[in-house]
Amino acid sequence: MADRIFAGVLLLVTLAYSVIAFTTIKAPFQYDPLGPESWPRILSIVAIICLLVILWKPDTDKLDVAGQTWFRLAATVVLLVAYSELYEPLGFILATILFGTVLSAMLGASVLRAIIFGFAAGIGGYLLCAVLLDLNLPEGEIFETLFERAPAEQPASAEGAS
């Protein structure tokens, strides 16, 4: 059943893909026999055939995921989305401290250890990647606006933003 639902959803997406390939994509003029639309058309037809075969003969019955696990997975995804959204506004250090603490606590670490892990990951990760390896990590818009109030810091923060 799970197979059929998944294949059904994929079929809808593929049908949309195919409709776009057959109607919307067009080059205003072209010299080659195959334009930008031909390849997606071929792909969508083969994919639809494959999906129909799966719908006809599914082989995965159930996803076999307990209710609690679904909850944990959903919470992880929410945390990941929140981490992505906060990455630039809060900066790497703060966002990572929050994310590391909450996720490790959710996965069973005690509160104190989770906090220690979060700080270690945030500060250690920044020192390792941004300072030692010279990678580009966000410093945080909050700090930049804070620094901008102090006039002496202005050129430094403008540089950091670029």
């Binding site: 992505s84 790497f92 994310f99 490790s104 996965l107 670490a109 892990f117 990647c129 580009n136 966000p138």
Partner: peptide, 24 residues
Amino acid sequence: PQKYLTPMIAILAFIGIYTIVGNP
């Protein structure tokens, strides 16, 4: 323990992807 390994993977993946072009 997995409770630390899992967040570490996410943090590494995020560092890696963000540093390519810096697009959240």
